[in-house]
Amino acid sequence: MLDWTVVTAAFLTAAVEWVEAFTIVLAVSLSIGWRGAAGAAAAALAVLAAMTVATGGVLSMGLEVRWLQLAIGVFLLLFGVRWLAKAVARGAGLKALHDEAESFAETRAELSRGDRAAGWLIAFKGVLLEGLEVWLIVAAFGLHGRAWASSTTGALAALVVVLAAGLAIRAPLTRVPENAIKFVVGVMITAFGTFWTYEAVAGERAWPLGDLSLLALGAFYALGGIGLIGLIRRSRPIGAAT
């Protein structure tokens, strides 16, 4: 039975990464064609699938997962804090909003200086690097009650949605409110990272409220981020450059 909390968190996180990966693949396809770009993307996805299966297989053997939980929890916490910090900076006007159209143009410019092999590698690298973050989230959420089916379902559903939308419009997905998504995902990932890291250190009874503690942690980080955005905006000089 699927854990829809995990499915939703994995879906939102993966969607952002798949949008960025698709933008790279789309740009490459205009240089080497859809077949070559799709082949590179498929190769990268195969590597990620093998990593996911391997990680789940190790855990299914009943081995001690405490240290793996701690390691992934720390990485998840750092990953979430990074996203949250960027979203707060962009929301407060300290950092320019991410522009998928600009990323698309930069990738095409890079391709113009290379050949077909270089284009294939760019698509492969782009999907693999973006997908590695998805794999990290899938592995981390998979530890949540061994919810591998839920975390994998969320990530795959996001891939299908982004791919379908991208193929339908055949253009960079510039209308996706990426900063808003990254803020929400940053909050969720930071909350999960905090939860898993402390539980790995203090034991299963670290959180008296159990999984409900995730809601409290999420609210704490969300309100803190919103408050920080407001504080920075009020403290900035009027007319300051963004």
Score class of each variant (00 low, 15 high):
residue 207 W to E: 06
residue 182 K to R: 11
residue 167 L to A: 10
residue 178 E to G: 11
residue 177 P to C: 04
residue 203 G to C: 06
residue 175 R to D: 15
residue 139 A to P: 05
residue 198 Y to M: 14
residue 153 T to N: 04
residue 155 A to K: 00
residue 130 E to Y: 07
residue 202 A to T: 09
residue 156 L to Y: 08
residue 153 T to Y: 05
residue 142 G to T: 02
residue 183 F to E: 02
residue 154 G to W: 00
residue 203 G to T: 05
residue 150 S to C: 01
residue 181 I to T: 08
residue 182 K to H: 07
residue 200 A to G: 01
residue 151 S to Y: 04
residue 125 K to P: 08
residue 198 Y to D: 12
residue 147 A to C: 07
residue 179 N to A: 06
residue 145 G to V: 08
residue 191 A to L: 06
residue 116 R to Y: 12
residue 196 W to A: 13
residue 157 A to Q: 08
residue 158 A to L: 01
residue 165 A to N: 09
residue 163 L to N: 10
residue 125 K to Y: 15
residue 118 A to I: 11
residue 205 R to V: 12
residue 135 W to R: 00
residue 190 T to I: 11
residue 185 V to F: 07
residue 141 F to W: 09
residue 127 V to W: 04
residue 165 A to H: 10
residue 166 G to N: 03
residue 124 F to T: 03
residue 197 T to M: 10
residue 178 E to F: 14
residue 143 L to M: 13
residue 206 A to T: 06
residue 119 G to V: 06
residue 202 A to D: 11
residue 146 R to S: 15
residue 152 T to K: 01
residue 173 L to Y: 02
residue 169 I to L: 15
residue 176 V to H: 02
residue 206 A to W: 05
residue 150 S to H: 00
residue 130 E to M: 08
residue 164 A to L: 14
residue 191 A to T: 01
residue 116 R to D: 12
residue 150 S to L: 02
residue 196 W to M: 14
residue 204 E to F: 14
residue 140 A to D: 06
residue 116 R to Q: 13
residue 193 G to I: 02
residue 163 L to T: 12
residue 194 T to L: 07
residue 170 R to H: 14
residue 179 N to S: 08
residue 152 T to F: 06
residue 183 F to Q: 07
residue 146 R to A: 15
residue 194 T to S: 09
residue 114 G to C: 14
residue 109 A to T: 03
residue 131 G to C: 00
residue 127 V to E: 05
residue 112 S to I: 10
residue 119 G to C: 06
residue 182 K to C: 04
residue 142 G to K: 00
residue 160 V to A: 13
residue 189 I to L: 11
residue 192 F to Y: 15
residue 151 S to E: 01
residue 126 G to N: 02
residue 193 G to A: 05
residue 198 Y to W: 15
residue 133 E to W: 03
residue 162 V to Y: 05
residue 178 E to I: 15
residue 150 S to N: 02
residue 207 W to L: 06
residue 127 V to C: 07
residue 115 D to I: 09
residue 139 A to R: 03
residue 167 L to T: 08
residue 150 S to I: 00
residue 155 A to R: 00
residue 148 W to T: 03
residue 124 F to P: 01
residue 119 G to I: 03
residue 176 V to F: 06
residue 167 L to H: 10
residue 181 I to L: 12
residue 122 I to D: 05
residue 179 N to T: 10
residue 206 A to E: 05
residue 177 P to H: 05
residue 135 W to E: 00
residue 193 G to Q: 01
residue 169 I to R: 15
residue 110 E to T: 06
residue 147 A to N: 06
residue 119 G to F: 01
residue 199 E to W: 06
residue 184 V to Q: 03
residue 166 G to D: 03
residue 151 S to P: 04
residue 179 N to R: 07
